[in-house]
Design a binder for these strands. Structure first.
Lengths: 154, 154
DNA sequence: TCAATCAGGACTATTTTAGTACTAATTGAG
DNA sequence: CTCAATTAGTACTAAAATAGTCCTGATTGA
């Protein structure tokens, strides 16, 4: 199905929330409260995204998180890279440049082409676009089964 | 990482093998022997791909499998659809047309755009391209770790 | 009738993903 | 200087998805 992990979905929500007030420092608890995600999960996400440079953190009392750059500068590809590692439809195709035998290896060509296409699409969509989507997914029916935006039970 | 499942990888190998002799009927054992995959796995794959119409089967003694259509008519998207279900980066985005609230739901727009781009890329690559890749992946180094084309241990 | 073969599904094992908990480090404020 | 709030790191547990196996039944050519 080639689907994103839940964590990435949540990550988008968290980033969308931070994007709403880019200048304001938000603690993990703030984010958890407003996104309705469980605190430990939000905490984990923020830590991950700090390490990968999507958000910046301030430690100590009154500490918290902020976006590392303008929302327009954060793409879907950035989020997925941060939370799932580099996009790579096959094992070796993610390591362009690392693979010494790239020009011998037939795998590169076709799957690589696909990878590039995917990445380009993911690069074009930025946080503001995603943020618009995040907060208004209504309950809907998927093949007869009623679903809602899936969030962490807590 | 957005990666394909192993099964899909194997599926490609199996199809590539069938594509080598499109007119010849191959039993599951034949395929297993020549692809170096475990028989039960190959069997499972072939059954799945038969049900989804990628290959046709003939039962009974002297039975076996053949491609359902010309190799050029089978795309990467077909293989993934058959073995992993429809490509859909988010939950609801796979059900275009089924979702009654599609025009209300903000999720459609951005992720949908990404989905379409991915699907187009997957549609363009056909079995002959993939087949060329399948049989000559040499041992290589991935970030210092020596790897080979991963196959089923059996 | 038998042996070879596919069909279907149940089941188990493995791996990946999600989620939690605990301990250490940092820092502003009283 | 101490305390409370807060992030950092990491280890661990739980749940879900994926992979893989096996068994039983149906089909068919010899």
């Amino acid at each position: 199905m080639l689907k994103m992990s839940k964590l990435t979905d949540y990550g988008t929500m968290v980033l969308a929330f931070l994007a709403a007030n880019p200048t304001r420092m938000q603690s993990a608890s703030d984010v958890a409260r407003d996104t309705h995600l469980a605190l430990p999960t939000v905490s984990k996400l923020l830590k991950l995204m700090t390490r990968t440079g999507l958000v910046v953190s301030t430690r100590g009392a009154l500490g918290g998180y902020q976006l590392a750059r303008a929302p327009e500068e954060i793409s879907a590809a950035d989020v997925i890279d941060a939370l799932e590692g580099p996009v790579a439809i096959t094992q070796c195709s993610g390591s362009v440049g690392h693979c010494e035998l790239e020009d011998v290896c037939g795998v590169s060509s076709s799957w690589q082409k696909i990878n590039v296409a995917i990445r380009r699409a993911l690069d074009e969509v930025r946080l503001p676009h995603l943020a618009a989507a995040e907060f208004r997914m209504p309950p809907m029916n998927l093949m007869g089964i009623p679903i809602t935006q899936e969030t962490d039970r807590r």
